[in-house]
């Protein structure tokens, strides 16, 4: 048919070869679009596949015990099939709690300073370093913790409070984690504070409030959802952080009673025992249960903070 020419309504020649080309192009577009849809569905369903896979692997240990028992028991005897996650959960909570207590005030103050007080030059100089900090791999934070924080606690902090500490403690884990979540919190708070409408500040200043009073009574209150979202996101990040914490927090499976006690967070439990898990029955299932636990908590926290943030974004845009 190639070369056979007819006339269309508009009087222009239509070449069947060109029509064929056109068909091929459209077909190509269609096939590629289906392929892309497939990739999109596959990668999005990763969330569900991970959840289901971990749950499926946790079934043996769940059949052997109950959710309640697994979460509240402190007895960890893999050879007898006893898995109590309570100390690990508490280890995670201690480390995360310390990290947030240290990081949140520092980050709020920093963000307030660079957005409200400092010359814009300060922000332009500081933010690249914050970004660089966020790029540093967890294991490097771990090395830094071992080399710097551990001796600091052992020789300079702990002696003031307790008789003896090796330095490997939930405090060390908390400090290292706090530094790791600085960039996350600072960058979110920066965005939140920068989108505060100027009119709001002007209104307060016009009533005779000082800058600090305006910040305290108006800006912080307005920014509260953003601060909460940043905190929730930081918590979920801290929850799952493995290697850096593992390297510094002592990994002793007892419930910590002071910041100088060692702790054993959930991710560290998974990471430390992967080698043995195939040889002891139910052990692999118990570790997958730990992963499932992390997965569920972090999923929930992430969703909550994303919803708060996207609401805030819409409110600011409106």
């Amino acid at each position: 048919m190639i070369g056979y020419v007819i006339l269309s309504q508009s009087g222009q020649p239509i070449n069947y070869y060109i029509q064929l080309m056109q068909r091929i192009r459209l077909l190509k577009d269609k096939i590629i679009s289906k392929l892309m849809l497939l990739f999109t569905i596959l990668s999005v369903s990763l969330v569900f596949i991970i959840g289901i896979g971990l749950y499926y692997k946790s079934i043996p240990v769940l059949q052997n015990s109950t959710w309640g028992h697994l979460l509240t028991s402190s007895v960890w005897k893999p050879l007898k099939g006893l898995f109590g996650f309570y100390p690990y959960i508490m280890g995670t909570l201690w480390v995360t709690g310390i990290a947030i207590i240290i990081a949140l005030p520092l980050c709020v103050l920093t963000s307030l300073y660079i957005v409200e007080y400092a010359h814009s030059r300060v922000r332009r100089i500081l933010m690249p370093f914050v970004n660089l900090l966020s790029g540093i791999p967890p294991v490097i934070f771990g090395v830094w913790g071992v080399l710097f924080i551990i001796p600091l606690i052992q020789d300079h902090i702990a002696p003031h409070f307790v008789e003896f500490s090796t330095g490997y403690s939930v405090l060390a884990g908390g400090i290292v984690l706090a530094v790791m979540i600085f960039p996350l919190i600072v960058s979110i708070l920066n965005e939140v504070l920068r989108t505060m409408p100027q009119e709001l500040k002007d209104a307060s200043l016009a009533l005779g409030a000082t800058k600090w009073e305006t910040i305290k009574k108006v800006i912080l209150r307005k920014a509260l959802p953003g601060i909460i979202a940043a905190t929730v996101l930081a918590i979920s990040r801290a929850f799952g952080e493995t290697i850096a914490v593992l390297m510094v927090c002592g990994n002793n499976a007892v419930v910590p009673h002071s910041v100088f006690d060692a702790g054993y967070p959930l991710p560290a439990l998974i990471a430390n025992n992967y080698g043995d898990m195939m040889s002891i029955p139910l052990y692999d299932s118990a570790l997958m249960f730990a992963a499932l636990l992390l997965f569920i908590i972090i999923l929930l926290f992430n969703i909550i903070s994303r919803i708060i943030l996207s609401r805030l974004e819409r409110k600011m845009a409106a």
Binding site: S10, Q22, L26
Partner: peptide, 13 residues
């Protein structure tokens, strides 16, 4: 040219 471009069967490119 007499062809309804919003007809679902019309090829848009």
């Amino acid at each position: 040219d007499g062809e309804d471009i919003y007809d679902p069967n019309t090829e848009i490119t």
